[in-house]
Amino acid sequence: MTASPEPNPAPGLRAKKKARTRSAIQRQALRLFAAQGYEATTVEQIAEAAEVSPSTVFRYFPTKEELVVSDGYAPEVVEAFRAQPAELTPLQAVRGAIGSAFGGLSGDEVARRRQLQELVLTVPELWAASLGNIKQTQRMLAGLVAERAGRDPADAAVRSFTGAVFGVLLEVWLRWAEDPDLDALEALDRGLAHLEAGLPL
């Protein structure tokens, strides 16, 4: 009589395990990038440090660039934006969503995100790869704003609004990559508040 196979983990446990593996791979990759540079670090070195096989690294991150550059989709921001009270203007909803999504991040997570931004700005191939991320983020924001305003994402007013908000996001992102002491969340909220006030000078 053969023994019954071990039951498969519950879907929730599988998802948590995958998230932990993905996080461990990226954490080790960032550590190695900081220690020896992006170009000098190989996927094999990352796999060894994370105690996984190179094929596992590629399963989670199909290219080396994707260890740093995301696809531009931020589910926590989408959920936070849609959860904002209906009476808020789109700009107020953006401010509330960003504060809600990122206000509770740990110090380690904030440092990790800043390191990612710095890598994108200092490694040419990562900057090139991030252009798709930027476009996807713009489309995501336009879609959310259009959904709240009851307009088409291609509407000129929606596109102008999205461009203005994204300009604030990009300006803070660039400063944060150069200044590790910058309170990026506070700077972002201040910039959006200035935009909301009509950009007075």
Rank of each mutant, 00 (worst) to 15 (best):
H194R: 11
I46V: 15
A111S: 06
E44P: 04
S70N: 15
E76K: 05
L188K: 07
T41D: 04
L121N: 02
G107N: 11
L88Y: 01
A164P: 09
V43E: 06
S160Y: 12
A154S: 12
V78W: 10
A15Y: 12
D71F: 10
A3F: 10
T2V: 14
F81W: 06
A49H: 11
D181S: 15
D155Q: 11
F61V: 07
V172L: 08
R22Q: 15
A101H: 06
E79V: 15
R112I: 09
E39C: 09
L32N: 02
R139Q: 05
R190F: 11
R159Q: 15
W127Y: 10
T122F: 03
A149P: 01
E186V: 10
L105C: 01
A24C: 04
V120Q: 08
A146T: 04
L174V: 12
A83N: 10
L188I: 12
A74M: 14
A10Q: 11
E79T: 15
R59Y: 12
V158S: 00
D179R: 11
Q36T: 10
L144H: 02
T21Q: 14
D152V: 05
G191S: 01
T162H: 02
K135M: 10
Q136K: 05
E44M: 07
G167E: 12
P90T: 02
A128S: 05
A83Q: 15
V57Q: 06
L144F: 01
A128Y: 00
A24M: 09
F58S: 11
P54T: 00
Q45H: 08
R22W: 04
L13T: 13
K16G: 04
L188H: 08
E44W: 08
D108E: 11
K17F: 11
A29I: 10
A184Y: 03
L30G: 06
K18S: 04
E147P: 03
S70G: 15
V168F: 07
A40Q: 15
L188C: 13
L144A: 02
L169K: 08
P90I: 02
A128P: 01
S100W: 02
S130D: 03
A35C: 05
A187W: 01
E171F: 08
R139L: 13
L88P: 00
S130K: 01
P124W: 06
P85T: 11
P90N: 04
Q117M: 13
L119A: 02
Q115F: 03
Q92P: 05
S23R: 07
F61Q: 03
A24Y: 05
T42K: 15
